[in-house]
């Protein structure tokens, strides 16, 4: 079987010479469940700063994979090496767990450092951004990109329960119960949120997160991206700007206008019979472009200094 391993191992990586980038599944697996580490980077000279992309922990992670892939490739084409975390088949990957994701992110950072990165910026969308910010604080990251981050964990945790309740109400003939998931969690200490397991312990851990309070020392460069029909970043972005500014960081808050057919993180196809139209292709591209442009500006400033 050595030959089969060799054949398949050789396919871990591809190079796109036209785009000037490679993607590669690292041999190292991340975290206690062994998530895949998917690297992207330039074929040419690599910048000192690398990026680790942190997926969110709820069921919305599946709807954000394409966005993360586009951001990674855009950064790679701009000279940055990037790692993204891909949960797989381990039972831990079927659970909503803040510690598991933090462990994966820390190991992704370590992986990039071992590959020669001078520093590793962290990036995430929704609660993935929240976790990226917590890890930036813990790891002393030099840069941070937050796309529509959840500032208060309590709100995000409640939203998880609400999402399950809505899906149950819509799916069950004869009705469901809007308080059902909350009651089930309280009664049994466990509830299924769109196929992912949420324990009371995990719910409490997520609920306890207050980003403005937990950011105590991060003084790096940061980008907070808000997405809304008007293009105006939400109130959470304003709070983060204030907090990150207080800490002495170089913070940029910007908005991307988009009609948002579905809220970011939700199912984004418009179904017309059997046809599925992707309503987020343009937005994902805009987010990737905005992140890369900001990252390049930072690299230019650093080089000039």
């Amino acid at each position: 079987m050595a030959s089969s391993s060799d054949t398949l191992t050789a396919l871990r990586r591809y190079e796109d010479t036209e785009a000037g980038l490679f993607e590669e599944f690292a041999e190292r697996r991340l975290g206690p469940g062994g998530a895949f580490a998917l690297l992207a980077g330039p074929l040419g000279e690599r910048r000192p700063l690398a990026w680790a992309i942190c997926p969110t922990i709820g069921p919305e992670q599946g709807n954000l994979r394409r966005l993360e892939a586009l951001v990674a490739r855009r950064l790679a084409a701009s000279g940055f090496e990037v790692a993204r975390i891909r949960p797989d088949v381990h039972p831990l990957h079927g659970e909503i767990s803040l510690p598991t994701r933090l462990a994966e992110l820390e190991e992704a950072v370590e992986l990039l450092r071992r590959r020669g990165a001078g520093g590793v910026g962290l990036l995430g969308t929704l609660f993935g951004g929240t976790i990226a910010a917590l890890a930036a604080e813990r790891l002393g990251a030099p840069a941070l990109v937050l796309v529509e981050p959840a500032v208060r964990g309590r709100q995000y945790a409640r939203e998880l329960l609400r999402r399950e309740a809505v899906a149950t109400l819509m799916g069950e003939e004869g009705g469901g119960d809007a308080e059902g998931p909350k009651r089930e969690l309280a009664a049994t200490g466990r509830v299924s949120i769109r196929g992912l397991q949420l324990t009371q312990e995990a719910f409490d851990a997520v609920s306890a997160v207050d980003l403005t309070a937990e950011l105590r020392s991060f003084a790096g460069r940061s980008l907070v991206l808000g997405i809304s029909p008007s293009g105006e970043p939400g109130p959470g972005a304003a709070k983060l700007r204030e907090r990150l500014g207080e800490l002495g960081g170089d913070v940029t808050v910007t908005g991307i206008p988009d009609p948002l057919y579905a809220p970011l993180g939700e199912y984004y196809y418009r179904d017309a019979g059997l046809l599925r139209h992707d309503t987020r292709l343009e937005l994902d591209g805009k987010v990737a472009a905005a992140v890369a442009e900001w990252a390049l500006a930072g690299a230019a400033t650093a080089a000039a200094a």
């Binding site: 994979r65 892939a69 992707d278």
Partner: peptide, 13 residues
Amino acid sequence: SGDSPGLVSQWNP
């Protein structure tokens, strides 16, 4: 879709 390169605006079975 997912982690595969490319852009597809519509899926039709």
